[in-house]
Structure formats: structure tokens, C-alpha cells
Design a protein around this nucleic acid. Structure first.
Lengths: 365, 365
DNA sequence: GGCATTTGTGCAAACGTTTACACAATCATG
DNA sequence: CATGATTGTGTAAACGTTTGCACAAATGCC
């Protein structure tokens, strides 16, 4: 059977030219006559020739045609649809350019960094997408020094960027949330945050603190509840404590919707009406937020769009031979999705507020 | 700079042996003395030698080390966390075997089948995972006839399998749901289903119909509401119609949780109490189901486990040279997650029920 | 019409591996 | 001590492609 895969030589033979000519014709080499190119392309298609990528990349050192995404976070996928949305966006952004997405799982026995090192070493991928950056991120340091193309979803520092990234402007969003609530009369604020040093934690928190400071209203107070990211029980406890404090906040911002939904639950549990007794604003606009009672006011973080843009940037980076002197960055402003979990403050009978130090950091309950 | 990538020759040179010896030693060829193997391995590690996969697969015809997953469904990722969970499971299952996952997006301009054909042609992947099978699935036909290794998540036919698959036993689950509700006194049932001819639709529906037929109680009736899968408005309409029928069902099964949540919403809208006036059971146990009010009784479909098993099967298939005569299959029995959306039927004042024809198919409203 | 230039093509080497075959050294056997 | 088996290693070809170099033919110029 001639079931064997067609090679460039087969094309050459049927056409009576050399393999070199076929190679050049297919590569669009200008030294091949247009007429020959035509004939080559036709026969290549006819006999079903498909270039052998292994051979190609062996000789030309050309990339693998893959862009990698590291699958690490065990909470990925379970809690929300972040991963699904992100991947959909990446796939769409890359597919247009004939690049495929390659997912590397991190086995329990290995560190994420070692997986990255392996990918870089083996050239398994031509570039990497790094999701969910944390505050001190060794991955980024390694990739930068290795000169490997990558784009992060999430910034790492406020300073001038050393690499390309796409991020959500959590700073602006949280400032906006504060202003909306302040305008509704709220003065006692709560923030539900996580222990883990993710960049988005830092940005969103700062957005809130800066907005409070900018306002400069001494009546504004802020109480902060912190819990581990994936520990449901601790999360409930922390939030319950926040809501049952004697001077409990009348408005609570949360780092992401999952936390806000828990606030909603705890509020119901404690007999607090939302938004009557308590306003709640989340972040991300996950599917459950629309279904919550009351519907959660939150920010749409446009994960899919971020992913598509990340893909675009990485592809652009791969196309250039050298790394761009000044990396491309994109800050996406999340849109406030108004639903029913926020409203004007209800004048409480015993309504005195805690003082706020002007450095912007509120008293910790 | 010696920044060039180390080759097998570098190892050979530093050791004073031939490249062939190094290759054999690293491959575990038994004709190499243990002592030499030791030395080779040591120096290889020392100088940081990483085999060039392109060269390897060029000469040995060995596979690419990738397993592909086709990203097609635009609803993927948005509605629930299926994609995220599935990918996490796949990654975990494959990572253990040093195989990587590769995601191919389907551009709007191309059909999924052409993408698959391309992957098979280019040997971009050694095997494929096909998710969410539909009732007449050309993908499966093509892959089967091409002799390409693959595993599907979801069956395609009830008959003896021609290929390996992992699936969720929706038939048994829906029968179980029916029995639970029947025991609680329900006789008027509703089913919310979708237009699209997915396999899981068929299996789950049949499970319910069979259970009804088995019961043989002429008092049992079934009304069916159908809507397009992703059309929220039509979905609401169809469900509202079902719930406001004069002889509306007292218990509603839905094909998946998304539909059940809509039932919950519509019930609230119509002033029906759940589970007092209406029992609802979903399928999949998505995150929102636990947060719904009342908590949704549903089945846990164990997506992650399915994915892990799919990966395992595919890896096993790849390891064998020939396709197994009798494909491996796995039917996972979903576990009923009892929450608060179902309960005993409330005796209605005007409680006569529709007759049920004995072929098991109920009257369509 | 001779010469330089342009244009199109072929030859052969190279990329980093694996592997069939050959061969040298060692060893047991008679 | 010759013989054959065993053991370990080297040689060289092959995988399918790209590309530097050479070269023949066609073209332009004086």
C-alpha cells in the first residue's frame, strides 16, 4: 500500500523538479517563477502533501507552533468559569494565526517553575501565557532572564513593565465602587479579601484605599476580613465576624464574586436584608452572580477578551525576531454591572462611625 | 557564548564515547553496560542535555507526545465550569504519563471536522479526546475509519461500542430521580430538555421514559418543554409555559442544572413555592446549584473524574501498537446530591392527573 | 556579438536523532 | 588453545526538510 505519508520528494518526482524547488515554492521564495509555484502548489494539493513539522523545525530551528498555558491552580475550573472562558479566548485568538494552545499540567510532585523550565528547555512551546500572577512571581523572573516570549494575565509591578501583560483595572473598579456607595450615603465600609498574595488583591485593595484617601472624609471607616482563598469554612467565619461586629459595615466590597456570594449567604443567615441593611459589590460577574438573590452588583472582568488580547500580543511578539524594547500592555477597565445587591444606606439609630486615619488604612476589627 | 543547545554529540564528546552509545544508554537499551549507562546519565544531566524532540520523532516516527482536545462549542466555558473541570482532569491524567494536552480551536471559517482532519494529517497529536458527542457524530466516523486513537466523553450509540468512551449514566440517574419523586407522591412530571441532538439528551430522556414505563402507573403523566440550548429568552418562555399549564407538573426534571435554575427562577416569578408547590431536580451539580435558593437537588456528574479516566484510556490505547479488539468503556453512575428543591407532593384540591399511554410517552402540552 | 547581469533551478550539506550492521573484546567451552 | 557465544561499542545510513552555493539559461547593455 502507498499509505505512506507523502513527502516533499513525492511532489518533486511527480513534477520532475528537485525537492529544493518544491520547498522554495511552498515557502514563497521569490526566486521561484510564479508559474512553477503554481504547478507545485497544485500538485502538492493533489497528492495530499503535508509538510512534516518535525523535519521542518529540525532543520530550520523554527518553533513548534505551540503556545503554552500552565495549568496549576487546583481551584481552577471548580469555583468559576475562569479557566473555561480564558481558554476559549486564547483558542480563538491563537487559532486565527495557525498557532495551537498547549496545556501543561503541573504534577503534584513538581513545581510550576520546573514545568516552565522544562518547556523552555525542550522548546515544547514558542511562547507562554502566564495567568493569575502573584505578587512575587518567580515564573516571570525566570522567563524574562531566559529571554523566552511570554505574556501575563495580570501585572506584577506598578512600575514600568518589563514584559507584556493584559490586566483588569481593579484599581479603578474598586475606586468606582467606593464612589458609587459613598454617593449612596455609605460611610462604614467592609472589604473581604484573601490571604494569598495575588496581584489582583493588591490592585483592588489599593484602588479602594486610594479612593478613600482621595475623599478625605474622616467619617469613612474600613474593616477588612481576610480568609484563605479556597477554604470555605474559614471564609464563612471571617465574613460572619465582619458582619456581626458591633459597628458592622453598611457596604461591603469583595475581591471576587465567590466572596460576595458568601457575604450574601451570611447576611441572610444573620437576618440582614440586602440591600436594605447591607450593600454588597463583587467582582468578575460569574454566572452565579446573576442568579443570586438579590442579584449581585459586580464588575464584568471580561476574561474572554483579556485572553484574546493576550493571545494577540504573544503572537505579535513571536512574529518579531527580537523582543520589543518597550513591551505592550493593556489595561481593561471592568464595567460595573448594576444589579440589586446595593442601595442607599439606611439610617441606623446608633449610627456613629469609626475614625479613619488619614493614611487611608482603616481600623482592623 | 556556548548558549547553543546541547546535543547528544556534546554528551558523547565529553565522555569519549560515540553518539550511538549515548542514545542507547538514555533509551535504556539493554546492550549498554550498567556502568556506562550511569556515566552517560550523569554527564547528560551535568551538561544539561535535553533531547531534541523534533529529531527524535523525525527518525523514529514516534508520536508528538500530544493529545488533542477540540474546542468547538461556543457555549463552552461561559455557562458553567464544564470546560475547566474537564481540562483539569485531562491535564492531571495525562501529565502523569508525560503527555501534554493540546487544544485546537475551531475557527469560524472551518468545520470541526476539517480541524480534526488536519490534526490527523499533520500528526499534530497522537490521539484525540472528543467531548460532548452528538447523536449523529461525523467526527467519530472519520476517526474510526482513519484508525486514529481517540476516546469520547459521551457515547454515540447504545449498541456495542466501536470505540472507547467514558460517559455518565444519565439513564440510571433519571430513573432514580423519577423513583425518588414518585415515592414522594408525585404523579405529574415535567421534563425540560433541549433542541440539540446531544447524546446525553437521549440517554437521560430515555431513562425517565423507561422508569415511567416500568412503573406502569396510569396516573403518571409527563409534559415536556423544549428550548434551544443557549437561548435564554426562549428557555424562560418554554419553562414559563410548562409551569403555568392548567395541569402543571408537580415535579420537574431538567437535562442539566442551568435549566433547573431557570425553573427555580420562573417558579419564584409565578409565585410557586419550591419544594412546596413544585419539586425540581437538575443534573451536573454546577457551582451555582449549591448557592441557589432553595439549594438545588441534582446529580454530581463528576466531570473531572470522567476526564481523568478518558485520559487514562487514551494513554493505554496509545501504548498498544494496535487498536484493541474490544474498546474500553466506562459508565459512571452519577450520585444524587440531595438539597432542598424537592419534597413530597402537596395534595392539590383539584388533583386529577392526565392519563399516560403505555408506550411510556406522555401527553405533550 | 561579447560580456555582465538577472532569473530559475539543482546539488549537497546540514539539523539531531535512532538503529541495523559490523566488529572488537571478553569469556566459557571443549 | 581454538571455537563459539556473549557483551559492549562504533560506523554509517536514514528520517524530511531547508538553504548556501553553483550553474545554466535568458536577458540587457555597449
Amino acid at each position: 500500500m502507498p499509505g505512506h505519508r507523502k513527502t516533499i520528494k513525492d511532489v518533486a518526482r511527480t513534477l520532475g523538479v528537485s525537492a529544493a524547488t518544491v520547498s522554495r515554492a511552498l515557502a514563497g521564495n521569490p526566486r521561484i517563477s510564479p508559474e512553477t509555484r503554481q504547478r507545485v502548489e497544485a500538485t502538492a494539493r493533489d497528492i495530499g502533501y503535508i509538510p512534516n513539522r518535525a523535519a521542518q523545525s529540525l532543520v530550520s530551528g523554527r518553533g513548534s507552533g505551540f503556545v503554552g498555558l500552565i495549568l496549576t491552580d487546583p481551584g481552577y475550573g471548580r469555583e468559576d468559569s475562569y479557566l473555561g472562558e480564558f481558554i476559549s479566548g486564547l483558542g480563538a485568538g491563537l487559532g486565527q494565526h495557525g498557532i495551537d494552545l498547549f496545556l501543561a499540567a503541573v504534577p503534584e510532585t513538581q513545581s510550576e517553575l520546573s514545568v516552565i523550565r522544562n518547556i523552555v528547555g525542550t522548546h515544547r512551546a514558542d511562547g507562554l501565557i502566564i495567568a493569575r500572577t502573584s505578587e512575587a512571581d518567580p515564573r516571570i523572573e525566570f522567563l524574562s532572564s531566559a529571554g523566552f516570549p511570554f505574556v501575563t494575565h495580570g501585572r506584577t509591578s506598578i512600575e514600568a513593565p518589563q514584559h507584556s501583560w493584559v490586566d483588569t483595572d481593579g484599581t479603578a473598579a474598586f475606586a468606582e465602587a467606593f464612589e458609587v456607595l459613598y454617593a449612596l450615603g455609605h460611610r462604614r465600609f467592609g472589604l473581604v479579601t484573601i490571604k494569598e498574595p495575588m496581584m489582583f488583591r493588591q490592585h483592588r485593595t489599593e484602588g479602594l484605599l486610594q479612593a478613600i484617601a482621595r475623599r478625605g472624609d474622616p467619617e469613612v471607616s474600613l474593616q477588612i476580613a481576610t480568609s484563605p482563598r479556597y477554604d470555605g469554612a474559614r471564609r464563612h467565619d471571617a465574613i460572619a465576624a465582619l458582619l456581626s461586629a458591633p459597628e458592622r459595615p453598611t457596604a461591603v466590597l469583595t475581591l471576587f464574586d465567590g466572596l460576595a456570594l458568601t457575604v450574601l449567604e451570611e447576611a441572610a443567615h444573620l437576618g440582614l436584608s440586602v440591600p436594605g441593611d447591607l450593600s454588597v459589590i463583587g467582582f468578575d460577574n460569574i454566572a452565579s452572580s446573576a442568579l443570586a438573590r438579590p442579584g449581585l452588583t459586580t464588575f464584568d472582568s471580561e476574561t474572554t477578551r483579556s485572553a484574546r488580547e493576550s493571545a494577540r500580543m504573544l503572537v505579535a511578539q513571536l512574529a518579531e525576531k527580537t523582543r520589543p524594547a518597550v513591551p505592550e500592555t493593556l489595561l481593561i477597565r471592568p464595567k460595573l454591572v448594576l444589579r440589586a445587591s446595593h442601595g442607599p444606606v439606611r439610617l441606623s439609630p446608633r449610627g456613629q462611625t469609626t475614625q479613619l486615619a488619614h493614611n487611608g488604612r482603616g481600623a482592623r476589627k
